[in-house]
Computed example of a mutant assay.
Amino acid sequence: MYARSTTITAAPDRIDAGLAAVRDDVMPAVLDMDGCVGLSMLCDRDSGRCIVTTAWASEDAMAGTREGVRRMREQATERFGAREPEVREWEIAAMHRLHPVGDDACARVTWSCVDPAAMDRVLEAFRTDLIPRMDGMPGFCSLSLMLDRQTGDNSLTAVYADRRALESSRQRATYIRDEFRRALHMSATDVAEFDVVLHHLRVPELV
């Protein structure tokens, strides 16, 4: 499974217009494309940072839509009142769901980088260590890992039932995250928290 993430920094007063464009125009068109297995959108209204992620059944399916989504992305970016977005393509290396994601859900995304040669160790630690520890967190819903095997860049997203669960998990999640990174010699690049404003990913369990 593969994913394309588009990160947009929206003008604060244009977030709702941008969200409407993604929900009403982009999502129906993308979901109708061959090989698409869903779309999600994360939003931080304080910073204006929004991340739209589309998931694809294969690398070929994702590659085949690059031109088809370009104009839609440009139009949505205009609606957000944003500059040029950052677009990344990833392998969805792992996906774990403990509970369904609801409309009040929030997410914490952690970006890191690791030696590409250590990717198999990262995946093994995700399965055997990280998942069991996250399953015990109150309000925890799901955990996914996207990576770029060439650069070693990776994106880890933990979703919680609501803002209260996200906030109450912060200290424990930081400890787990830092321990995970130290064990695998991963360098941290960024951490951010978001509301899950669209949750229509149909990616199967991948562990």
Score class of each variant (00 low, 15 high):
Leu98Cys: 01
Ala10Lys: 02
Gln150Met: 05
Glu86Trp: 10
Arg127Thr: 05
Trp111Phe: 07
Ala188Asn: 04
Phe194Val: 08
Ser169Thr: 06
Asn154Thr: 04
Gly64Asp: 11
Pro132Gly: 04
Val30His: 06
Asn154Pro: 04
Cys106Gln: 12
Ser112Thr: 14
Ser47Phe: 07
Gly152Val: 13
Ala76Trp: 10
Cys43Lys: 08
Glu89Gln: 15
Phe180Ser: 04
Met146Lys: 00
Glu59Pro: 09
Ala11Tyr: 05
Val87Asp: 03
Thr7Pro: 03
Tyr2Leu: 06
Met1Lys: 10
Ala20Glu: 15
Ala118Cys: 10
Asp13Ile: 07
Ala20Met: 11
Met119Gly: 08
Leu166Thr: 06
Ala183Pro: 00
Arg202Tyr: 11
Glu74Ser: 11
Ala21Gly: 07
Leu130Val: 10
Glu67Met: 12
Leu98Ile: 06
Asp190Trp: 08
Ala118Leu: 05
Val207Asp: 13
Phe126Thr: 01
Asp13Thr: 12
Pro100Phe: 08
Asp13Gly: 03
Trp90Asp: 10
Pro132Ser: 04
Thr128Gln: 09
Tyr175Phe: 07
Asp44Gln: 02
Arg66Lys: 13
Val101Glu: 10
Val87Cys: 02
Met137Thr: 10
Leu143Arg: 00
Phe194Trp: 01
Ala105Arg: 11
Val37Pro: 01
Ala55Ser: 11
Gln171Leu: 01
Ala173Arg: 01
Met33Glu: 06
Gly152Leu: 09
Asp162Ile: 03
Arg172Tyr: 00
Asp162Met: 12
Thr128Ile: 03
Ser40His: 13
Arg14Glu: 06
Pro100Met: 03
Ala192Thr: 08
His99Leu: 13
Glu193Asn: 09
Ser5Leu: 05
Met146Arg: 08
Ser142Asp: 00
Gly152Ser: 14
Ser155Pro: 00
Arg177Tyr: 00
Asp60Thr: 05
Arg23His: 04
Gln150His: 08
Asp32Pro: 03
Gly102Thr: 10
Glu78Leu: 15
Gly68Met: 14
Arg49Asp: 06
Leu145Glu: 08
Thr151Gly: 05
Arg170Tyr: 07
Arg23Cys: 07
Arg45Leu: 08
Ala29Leu: 14
Glu86Ile: 14
Leu19Pro: 01
Gly48Asp: 02
Ala93Phe: 06
Asp103Ile: 14
Val87Lys: 04
Ala29Phe: 15
Met27Ala: 13
Ala61His: 11
Arg177Ser: 00
Val197Cys: 09
Arg121Gly: 11
Leu201Tyr: 03
Ser142Leu: 01
Thr7Ser: 07
Arg202Asp: 14
Gly18Phe: 02
Arg133Ser: 07
Asp153Ile: 01
Cys106Glu: 10
Arg172Glu: 01
Asp16Thr: 04
Met137Leu: 15
Tyr175Gln: 04
Val22Ser: 00
Met95Phe: 12
Ile131Pro: 02
Met62Val: 03
Ser47Cys: 01
